[in-house]
Amino acid sequence: MRGPQDYGGLPAGLVDPVKNEHEPTHWERRVDAIMLLLFDPKRRLARVDESRRMQEALGDDYHKYPYYERWLQAITWLLLEKGVFTQEELDKKREEVRSRLEAERNG
């Protein structure tokens, strides 16, 4: 069975390399760096294949995520699965962060 990530050979649209080219944003660089640190020899908290397993488990939602949001979701699930933090800790922290960010965005 073909998983959601298995795009090879399927019909798709134009690549449009000019439109689909950008320097990574600060936010993307942060997600990228967090991943690299979790994968590095010092921590070895995740591997590329583990992260892909989580991304592929998104099923049909796989296609809806922008690239780095998909990776972020995958590593969050991995960290929960490995007990680095709990769902409760994450929910609490996220609530707190969200109010802070909303206040910043509203200026």
């Binding site: 979701q73 922290k93 960010l101």
Partner: peptide
Amino acid sequence: IEAESLETAVRELL
């Protein structure tokens, strides 16, 4: 804000 809050929360917890 969903994505940014998740990334920030994960980063701060780590």
